[in-house]
Design a protein around this nucleic acid. Structure first.
Lengths: 194, 194
DNA sequence: ATTATCTATAGATCTATAGATAATGC
DNA sequence: ATTATCTATAGATCTATAGATAATGC
């Protein structure tokens, strides 16, 4: 029943990847260890050779999800990012979407060890979107403020839109309004290029 | 052991009020019926004479929390609202704060019956903040868009700030930046008065 | 020999129900 | 007579551990 070291590593990665998806879809309390391990093709007893506890996995899955978002958006400019982020596709597929939007509410009730992972993930995403890339300190401060505002509005729009019933006109209106207004801001205040 | 009709009504209201607070603090899955009833000074068996199920209470507690926010902010203009909403006090007291910010993430995973309560609560809050109060249809549309953008950014800022560790500089920065930028927008685009 | 995985289970917790009780309200 | 509340419990589920197993890797 033992498996190769490569297989062990692959199994562990699959558990983390499944957790990152299932937690985003159903929340930290919405997915049990047994179900998670079954989704990864294993039995639940083996979980504790990979992780000390479910809380440990939560931190690792959050880091994986946040890292994935940063990598996926690394080659987008802010306008492309906003168009993708504030889309119905993103709203309706939380399992593959932004970890901040899907799990920040849950993270707020977790210990600082998990919140620290989120803070790092937020900071990373701000960097990817072009904060701190301006020529001088003052321009940097302004660029960073603009990116923070954009992320907050984008996250808020997705969170509120997802809280509405599936066919609610308000759900779509929130996305459309925020997308238009953010994009309008980047026309007036063009993105800072390095 | 039976109690008067007035007492029954009072007990029920206390259960709903405690639920509205505890759910905001710890999430729908974070509070059990037994603990909730104990917090209301009752034993858990009696719960089911008041509510058909925990899910029924969740809908009613959400409605109560959303209603409370609307009433509390009814006499504030948008600027006073934003100053209060994007404060450390609000961020650090979710149990008495905005239900949208505290529970939208949980609501997204609940059935449409609960999401419908949230959609109504959002719509109500938009109305309180002055959407639909302009003189003509076009001005109304613009005013509504501005309020939606403001709510999304405010909710997103609180949600992200709460996901950061308690002493995180980023948590405070998100609040300060979004507060300043929203207020700046209302200077440039003054609030629509009826 | 080591150890990742499996089966089985302990112990806690959670929602919901059953039946008894006693004060209200017709 | 009705019924809100209480005590007790059923049945499900969840995290974590114990012990057996069998293939890897020294």
């Amino acid at each position: 029943m033992k498996v190769s070291k490569a297989q062990v590593q692959e199994n562990r990665a699959r558990i983390v990847a499944m957790a990152a998806m299932l937690f985003r879809e159903r929340g930290y309390d919405g997915v049990g260890v047994a179900e998670l391990m079954a989704a990864a093709g294993l039995t639940h007893g083996g979980f504790y050779k990979h992780f000390k506890s479910k809380a440990d996995l939560m931190a690792e899955a959050a880091a994986a999800g946040l890292e994935q978002s940063a990598v996926n958006t690394a080659d987008l400019d802010v306008i492309a990012f906003v168009n993708q982020y504030l889309s119905r596709q993103h709203r309706d597929a939380p399992g593959e979407g932004c970890t901040m939007a899907a799990l920040s509410g849950d993270a707020a009730r977790q210990p600082d060890s998990i919140k620290a992972v989120f803070a790092e993930g937020i900071e990373r995403q701000l960097a990817v979107l072009g904060a701190n890339q301006a020529v001088d300190a003052d321009a940097n401060k302004q660029a960073r403020a603009l990116i923070i505002e954009t992320m907050a509005q984008a996250v808020g729009a997705i969170v509120l839109s997802r809280a509405c019933p599936d066919d609610s006109p308000l759900a779509d209106e929130i996305l459309a309004v925020c997308r238009a207004r953010i994009l309008g801001q980047y026309e007036r205040e063009p993105e800072v290029k390095p």
